[in-house]
Design a protein around this nucleic acid. Structure first.
Lengths: 192, 192
DNA sequence: GTCTATACTGAGATAGAC
DNA sequence: GTCTATCTCAGTATAGAC
């Protein structure tokens, strides 16, 4: 963190604050304070708040791509890879209960306020959707791979939203297991 | 609308605007303009913006209770009643694609900004949760009724969130059908 | 009850010194 | 590159006339 450029530090803190407080309610002062620079200095690096949002989304796109590639290379079966995805909600349960899903809450907020960066934030969903779709094709579900990918994605979003509302960790675990069991049933279908 | 009191008109317009634009981004001016009164007049009826939010949530609680009671009296089987719930996402698809789920987006926003009215908005979820739980008990799933209720609730939230992001009406229909089929499978389990 | 006028605050953004 | 000072605007909220 210490040897990062100021720009990188701004993006990192904005990334965190946009997740924790939401985009609208994070002010320049909030980010400036977190980074430890003055508000004025800000505009040397970014022309507007929207430009910071673009950078934050870009950063999230990069890290998400990296994570998906890692799953692709580490797990050997597509069904294990899909489970890697399902298990994020369990792994990140503490943060999800506090602040929701980083992707879902951002897309939801930008959609509601009609923000111009909406299509870009949706690309984060597209990243997961495409990857999951690919895994389902490998599983032998060529015809409805995309539909299944959307199903898994919807599920994870529903879990995250309700887990936050009810502050319920056990609910996350229970639903993740249910989803994994459903996936196993799906894999059996193909074998038969 | 014409013969409603000013207070009722304020709550009605605030209800609509909070749904369409979100709570934070709806200003007093927005509501005042929509109602057709001056901003000053506002404070005769409500002391603050938070007080309007309380009134809006109260109104939604009333109308939701009414809807659930209606389903309870009209459909004869619990499984048909749960399907009534599942079908809301299809019935309200146009609005959901534009603005998301009224309950989910409000709870999500209030949770993110740490608003004091968060527990009250969550009561809207509790209303559905309790009602669904009751239906699953009637279906013969006494032991895991609440878990199933949360499952259905999570599903509807996931559908609403992704439908808004991807602006996809067919996805809503497809997932609602999938959920109904799952429910039929569940009812068969009990019969056997 | 409803209005106009206005106070006060914090937001995003700019200018210019260092 | 970073700072301070400042501008502008929109938001919530209040005071007081009608």
């Amino acid at each position: 963190m210490a040897d990062k450029t100021t720009r990188e530090r701004i993006v990192a803190e904005a990334d965190r604050l946009f997740y924790e407080r939401g985009f609208e309610l994070t002010s320049f002062s909030d980010i400036a304070d977190a980074v430890g620079i003055s508000r004025g200095n800000f505009y040397y690096h970014f022309k507007s708040k929207d430009e910071i949002l673009d950078a934050v989304i870009g950063k999230r796109m990069m890290s998400t791509s990296g994570m998906l590639e890692e799953w692709e290379s580490q797990s050997d079966s597509p069904s294990e890879r899909i489970k890697d995805f399902i298990r994020i909600v369990v792994t990140n349960r503490a943060q999800i209960i506090r602040h929701g899903c980083p992707v879902g809450t951002l897309c939801s907020e930008l959609a509601k306020i009609g923000h111009p960066a909406q299509p870009q934030s949706n690309q984060l969903f597209v990243l997961f959707r495409t990857w999951l779709c690919h895994q389902f094709v490998l599983l032998g579900h060529e015809t409805d791979a995309d539909s299944l990918a959307m199903h898994v994605l919807a599920f994870s979003q529903g879990i995250a939203l309700l887990a936050q509302a009810f502050q319920d960790e056990r609910f996350i675990r229970r639903e993740a297991e249910r989803m994994c069991a459903w996936l196993d049933g799906l894999a059996d279908e193909v074998r038969v």
